[in-house]
Design a protein around this nucleic acid. Structure first.
Length: 256
DNA sequence: ATGGTAGGCTTCCTA
């Protein structure tokens, strides 16, 4: 089965891209971020026509997460213990025999700002939740827009970004905290090369110049590691007209 | 140090 994550940067604008990509890529589970839609405006009908069930947690203008799946989602959570957050950034559900956690991690704006402190606090609380969730659900997938560059090989110019937002040591330490729970960056189970990216800034012709970052990740728990068959980034949608600034990341998992 | 582009219901905020 294929599991994917994609920050669509407005599902209202990107719905045609999403539908085209679903037809082409035929994923079984898709986590979306930055839908920027209130739940009443979620385009469930258009998506269900392609054979997907939808659950979503959205808000006007900002944030918003959704899960699309061939099988219906069960035991859905939009809020987690210890994190009282009006921002819609988390969606947890059981799909088949997998527990899925879709995250739109806080961007953090700039190191040292209020939003940066919120990012680190948010990550601390989500990590505590995931530690518990792994006890309840060993077959756990945590995926989404992490807004953290894991390593120097995941960014076009590591020296220019050293210590900056998305690359700072406290952010990388927070991501390492997730790895320490036994969650594996599935892309790196299959690909060691530098130069594979999932996001390019709209500004300064970032995509044309390939000034990319790999910040969209699919983490697989230790119990799922043996079922991982391949991981990839589908760069095609980033090249379409009026694209999201992110492109989808994928994980292929065997059925058992 | 700043600004560049994109999306939203906006005369700026977020990324």
């Amino acid at each position: 089965m294929k599991i994917a994550t994609w920050n669509v940067n407005s599902l209202n604008v990107r719905l045609p891209h999403l539908l085209e990509w679903l037809r082409a890529a035929t994923p079984d589970i898709v986590a979306l971020q930055e839908t920027k839609l209130e739940d009443a405006r979620f385009p469930a009908a258009a998506i269900s026509e392609l054979g997907y069930h939808c659950v979503y947690s959205g808000q006007k203008t900002y944030n918003g997460v959704a899960l699309l799946s061939r099988e219906p989602a069960r035991d859905v959570l939009t809020d987690i213990p210890g994190l009282d957050d009006p921002q819609r950034r988390i969606l947890v559900a059981t799909i088949g025999d997998l527990r899925i956690v879709n995250l739109y991690v806080v961007n953090g704006q700039d190191v040292g700002t209020e939003k940066y402190a919120y990012k680190l606090d948010w990550l601390k609380k989500v990590t505590a939740f995931l530690r518990e969730e792994l006890q309840r659900h060993p077959r756990l997938i945590v995926l989404g827009d992490f807004n953290i560059v894991p390593e120097d090989r995941d960014i076009y110019d590591p020296e220019a970004w050293r210590g900056k937002i998305l690359c700072s040591e406290p952010e990388r330490a927070a991501l390492q905290g997730l790895f320490d729970l036994g969650l594996h960056d599935s892309f790196r189970l299959f690909q060691a090369e530098a130069g594979h990216y999932s996001w390019w800034d709209y500004r300064q012709a970032g995509y044309r110049r390939n000034l990319g970052l790999r910040i969209d990740l699919i983490l697989a728990s230790a119990a799922l590691r043996e079922r991982c068959r391949g991981a990839s980034i589908d760069g095609v949608p980033r090249g379409w007209e009026r694209p999201s600034d992110h492109t989808p990341a994928l994980l292929e998992l065997s059925d058992d």
